[in-house]
């Protein structure tokens, strides 16, 4: 069972939900797929026992073979390779690694070399629990490849939680693709509702099952509940805003270690999503 936790708006409690659900389960793997700004590890405080570089490839031009014909520059959609007067310029950070320049080069002057765009960290967090997170190198344009890698190495896990990036762009799609169920972390504010609508649109387009956890449920208005009812969307749970919760989260601690109220909510979500046996 693969469960993705996502949200349109940032800061609605994706990571809070992910790490607290993770801590409430006995045998589980969590991946933090928000590789631009990964935070789950701050709460789980596990030990990294293994790390791997994630690479992309970019072109290198053999200037002995290159005739400066200009075909590679014409083909590249990303301005990453530009033939100039006496040499061909390559901007590795703009390269999307599509392989086009090598294909079009008539003299075979182009080969590819690796460049790390980020890392994956493997952590053990107690018995039967594994946690992996990815981190995109600052300045790189896309973390999709790192997310795909994280998903690939965990594809056989029995229970997998995926802490997804916020929003509805390509990296969110990469994180949620293939999930059996998605949990939307939402907020009952006008911004929260508007952003959640976009997520609902995305999940319906991707034909994924989902339910909603309304976080900070006492800070806002009722519009979100009207929306859920009208759309026939399952409301899994509500979590109140309390200043003490904000402080616990701010310090990087787990709510389930401090609050019976939150422990019960996590168990209820687990029952509804995974079934009685897991709770």
């Amino acid at each position: 069972m693969k469960i993705a936790i996502l949200s349109g708006k940032g800061g609605t409690g994706k990571t809070t939900l992910s790490v607290n659900l993770f801590s409430s389960l006995n045998k589980v793997t969590l991946i933090d797929a928000d590789v631009e700004e990964p935070n789950s590890h701050l709460f789980l405080k596990g030990n990294t026992y293994h790390e791997e570089d994630i690479n992309k490839q970019y072109p290198v031009v053999d200037h002995d073979l290159c005739t400066l014909c200009g075909k590679c520059g014409e083909f590249c959609n990303f301005n990453a390779i530009i033939p100039a007067k006496k040499k061909v310029l390559v901007f590795d950070d703009l390269c999307h690694d599509c392989g086009g320049c090598k294909l079009v080069c008539p003299t075979n002057a182009i080969s590819y070399t690796d460049k790390a765009i980020g890392k994956i960290f493997y952590q053990s967090v107690g018995d039967n629990k594994q946690f992996l997170y990815g981190r995109l190198t600052v300045g790189e344009v896309s973390g999709v490849r790192i997310i795909e890698y994280l998903k690939n190495v965990t594809k056989k896990e029995e229970v997998l939680l995926i802490d997804s990036p916020p929003g509805t762009s390509c990296s969110t799609v990469a994180a949620i693709e293939g999930s059996d169920y998605c949990i939307i972390a939402a907020e009952p504010t006008p911004f929260g509702l508007s952003d959640m609508r976009m997520v609902v649109e995305l999940l319906r387009e991707q034909k994924l099952d989902f339910g909603v956890v309304v976080n900070k449920s006492n800070l806002g208005n009722d519009d979100i509940y009207k929306y859920l009812e009208e759309e026939g969307i399952e409301l899994l749970e509500n979590i109140d805003f309390r200043e003490e919760f904000a402080k616990i989260i701010a310090r990087g601690e787990l709510l389930v270690d401090h609050s019976e109220y939150v422990r019960n909510i996590m168990n209820s979500i687990i029952k509804k999503v995974l079934g009685e046996t897991y709770a």
């Binding site: 940032g10 800061g11 701010a250």
Partner: peptide
Amino acid sequence: PGIACNVISAITGVSKAIIVTEPSVSGLH
């Protein structure tokens, strides 16, 4: 939010960038 292409596009060539953060370990990170 984030640090990828959409953020890079938003700050390329601006004169001022205001970063809004919050006092939490995640915010600092």
